[in-house]
């Protein structure tokens, strides 16, 4: 029987102060999938992970991890999960090796130095195994937290904002790590508020806002429907109207006639833009400047909420 890695039904969380962080969440995540939970700050992404992992009590609803109920069979459920929280929290005086070995034991596994060695080597931490955590850089600490989460050989890895506060180079390094884990068959659930990150990594994306899952679909179809871009061509000399030769591009001229706006889809990408620029050039229009604008997550949410009311 091919049970989903995560199956969530009617999960709710209302905090003591009345804040409704999760509102009847239903979600199913398949095995081996990379699933991105995409939403703005305070949307409920972290709360959802915390409830499944046992850090926060659910107010109502159920969840199953590889077929094990998250409360009634918490041992079996939690042994399957590795959690990398958002905040960098480490025991400053522990060594990388000791803290990773501790995590493995804590999750009920017998000592296995060979596995820990593999995990640390995969994360480029092997040379630092005898270093105290306080001496490591932020990027390394985050990798140590991933090593701790992988120490007990989980099937499912939760990564809460894995690239928050990480520079571009490290972010790409993190994506490589995630890709390698995917190849090993680990199911990965990551939260992010970067559209780009979800696009790069995920097979499917769940959009969450105000504690509600608003839509779940493949990354490709989500980007097609949501990832609108606008190219603004600022003109060297104002125009009275859009030239006939450019009519096929569905351009709009600003009121002052000084700029042309071109709306295109995220997935159409560079090809469409190049075609347009060639056409503009051959129409003899001289450009003063070029600007592109991508719809931000916030704008996407506004359009989604607007569309649903």
């Amino acid at each position: 029987m091919n049970l989903p890695a995560i199956d969530i039904q009617g999960l709710e969380k209302t905090f003591d102060n009345g804040l409704r962080a999760l509102d009847a969440v239903d979600l199913s995540i398949g095995r081996g999938e990379i699933f991105a939970l995409l939403g703005p700050n305070g949307a409920g992404k972290t709360t959802l992970i915390k409830v499944i992992c046992g850090l926060t009590e659910a107010s109502a609803g159920d969840a199953w991890v590889a077929g094990h109920h998250f409360r009634r069979e918490f041992r079996q459920a939690r042994m399957r999960i590795g959690l990398v929280p958002q905040e960098l929290t480490t025991d400053a005086f522990e060594t990388v090796w000791a803290t990773t070995r501790f995590s493995r034991g804590l999750f009920g596994r017998r000592r296995d130095p060979a596995h820990l060695e593999k995990v640390l080597k995969d994360l480029s931490l092997w040379d630092k195994r005898n270093s105290m955590l306080m001496t490591l850089s932020g990027g390394m600490k985050r990798r140590v937290m991933i090593a701790k989460a992988l120490a007990h050989e989980p099937d499912i890895l939760f990564l809460d904002e894995p690239t928050a506060g990480v520079d571009v180079e490290l972010r790409r390094g993190m994506w490589q790590v995630i890709n390698r884990l995917r190849e090993q068959g680990v199911t990965i659930v990551l939260t992010t508020h970067y559209l780009e990150e979800a696009e790069q990594m995920a097979d499917r994306v769940g959009v969450i806002n105000n504690g509600q899952i608003m839509r779940v679909e493949s990354t490709e179809s989500l980007m097609q429907s949501l990832g609108q871009k606008r190219l603004t061509l600022e003109l060297a000399a104002p125009l009275d109207a859009v030239p006939d030769t450019l009519e096929g591009y569905n351009l709009t001229l600003t009121d002052d006639g000084c700029a042309l706006n071109y709306h295109y889809n995220h997935c159409e990408g560079a090809e469409a833009v190049q075609g347009l620029l060639r056409a503009v050039d051959s129409a003899g229009i001289r450009l003063h400047d070029v600007d592109t604008h991508e719809s931000s997550l916030e704008e996407i949410f506004v359009s989604m909420v607007g569309g649903s009311t």
């Binding site: 992992c53 046992g54 939690r78 042994m79 929280p85 929290t89 995590s103 999750f107 009920g108």
Partner: peptide
């Protein structure tokens, strides 16, 4: 205090 309690609370430990 330092936040590492997350690991204990998410572990399969009674």
């Amino acid at each position: 205090f330092i936040g590492t309690i997350y690991e204990l609370l998410s572990a399969p430990v009674s």
